[in-house]
Amino acid sequence: MKNAFLFCFLICYTAFGQANLPVEVSLFFKGEKLELEKWYIYESEKQNEKDENVDSVLFESLRFYLSGFELTKKGKSVWKEKESYHLIDAENPASCQINLNFAKNTDFDGLKFNLGIDSITNSGGVKGGDLDPVKGMYWTWQTGYIHFKLEGKSNLCPTRDNQFSLHLGGYSFSQNTMQSLSFDLKNPEKAVLELDLSDFLRGIDFKNLNHVMSPGAEAVRLSQQAAALFLLR
């Protein structure tokens, strides 16, 4: 049976050929390539006039899921990646390179994907690969993936060791944190997704918000904020 598939695949391959679109995720802080474990200085938004607004921040880890990649033409889907789940890990450069493979004659002018994992996969049975719970991106005390995880230290955090951890997830109804993103693709040869974390921090009041570890309104708001970081170059 496997051979038959392989045979069909080869026929298709020779007849139509394959094309690909490399999608690169590029992480920045204030326009500089993001480095983990490095102290950055930035101006936070003042909550009060009197507040000190110069903060130092250090990121220990940044991991998030991109899923459901689609190519579109005039807004209509022309190709969908199968089993499309990618865990992006700032610590692992290979994870920031996604390669989409599709038939050569695919005509497209747009790219669609989700930040996070859809609710059916969230509530379904266990899966392998990037979705394997050993990746540490699954909540154990309740069902659901952590869609976006940012951990580090900020001098503004009145917590032990100035730590903050933002674990954004939640899949059901009003708690759903998955964000859909779509972009026009000017260059059909390569897509570079840029995220600048300094923009993310601008909307966070670290003094009062430093631990988000369950689904809810905060997680939804921060997920929308995280989704707004994505720019396509």
């Binding site: 969230n122 509530s123 379904g124 049975g125 266990v126 719970p133 699954y138 154990t140 005390w141 309740q142 069902t143």
Partner: peptide, 20 residues
Amino acid sequence: FMWDGAIANLDMQSLAPISH
């Protein structure tokens, strides 16, 4: 699963006691 239905799939249930 669980008294409060926190877990939606049997496959994921074991993670809770393993990690708690």
